[in-house]
C-alpha cells in the first residue's frame, strides 16, 4: 500500500518519492545484479541502469502484478542485455542451463577482484562466490531469487517467464551444481555423497 502511493507519485516524476521507492528496493536489485554480473563494479553500473530505466518507464507499470515482480523482471532483462553485449565484445561464452542437459559452460568469467572487493572474505563465503560465478546465469539468478530473496515459486516463474515445474527442477539442479563445484574444492568436511550424482 505504501509502495502504491510512492509508485504513483514517482510515476508522475516526483523525484523525492522515487528516491524513497529506490531506497526500499535497491538492496534486492543490487544483489540480483551482483549475482548475475559476478562482480561489484558491473553490479553497481547495472543497478544504476535499472533504476534510471525505472524512473523513465514507471508509468508503464499497471499494478496488475506485484511491483517487485515487475522490478526484478526489469533487473533481469538489463543484466541479460549486458551479458549478451559482453559476450559479443569480449567473445566470452554466455550460456544458460539447458533443461534437457546440464549447463556446460561458464556464463561469465570469474573476474579478478577489484581493489574495493579485496576485502578479507570469510573463506567459505569466498568459495561460495567463486562457485556461484562458475554456474550458468539462470542458475545464479534462481538461487538468488529463491534462496536469498525467498520469493515463492510462482513469483519466480513470472519473473523468469518459466512454468512453475521448471522453476522447481531448475532450482534443484542449481543447488546440486553448486554443491558439486564446492565438493570439488573440498568445501565440505566430508566427501560428496553418491546420492547426489
Amino acid at each position: 500500500m505504501q509502495d502504491d502511493n510512492l509508485i504513483r507519485r514517482a510515476a508522475a516524476q516526483d523525484a523525492a518519492a522515487f528516491e524513497q521507492l529506490m531506497l526500499l528496493h535497491q538492496k534486492p536489485v543490487y544483489n540480483i545484479c551482483y549475482r548475475m554480473a559476478g562482480n561489484a563494479e558491473d553490479a553497481l553500473d547495472l543497478s544504476q541502469e535499472v533504476f534510471l530505466k525505472l524512473w523513465r518507464t514507471l508509468t508503464q507499470y499497471q499494478f496488475d502484478a506485484a511491483f517487485s515482480t515487475w522490478l526484478y523482471r526489469l533487473t533481469q532483462n538489463v543484466c541479460i542485455d549486458f551479458l549478451r553485449k559482453q559476450k559479443r565484445q569480449q567473445h566470452v561464452s554466455l550460456t544458460f542451463s539447458d533443461d534437457e542437459d546440464e549447463g556446460k559452460e561458464l556464463s561469465v568469467p570469474d573476474p579478478e577482484p577489484l581493489p574495493e572487493e579485496r576485502v578479507i572474505f570469510n573463506e567459505k563465503q569466498e568459495a561460495i562466490r567463486t562457485a556461484m560465478n562458475a554456474l550458468p546465469v539462470d542458475f545464479r539468478e534462481i538461487l538468488e531469487l529463491r534462496v536469498v530473496r525467498q520469493l515463492p515459486y510462482e513469483q519466480i516463474a513470472q519473473i523468469m517467464d518459466l512454468p512453475v515445474g521448471t522453476v522447481k527442477s531448475r532450482l534443484a539442479r542449481a543447488r546440486l551444481q553448486l554443491k558439486k563445484r564446492l565438493d570439488a574444492g573440498n568445501f565440505f568436511e566430508t566427501g560428496a555423497s553418491k546420492c547426489t550424482e
Binding site: Y30, S47, Q48, K124, I128
Partner: peptide, 15 residues
C-alpha cells in the same frame, strides 16, 4: 544458509 548470509549492502554510490 551461506548463500543467505552472503547478501551484500548496496554501495552509497548507487543511490
Amino acid at each position: 544458509a551461506l548463500l543467505r548470509e552472503s547478501e551484500l549492502e548496496p554501495p552509497a554510490a548507487l543511490h
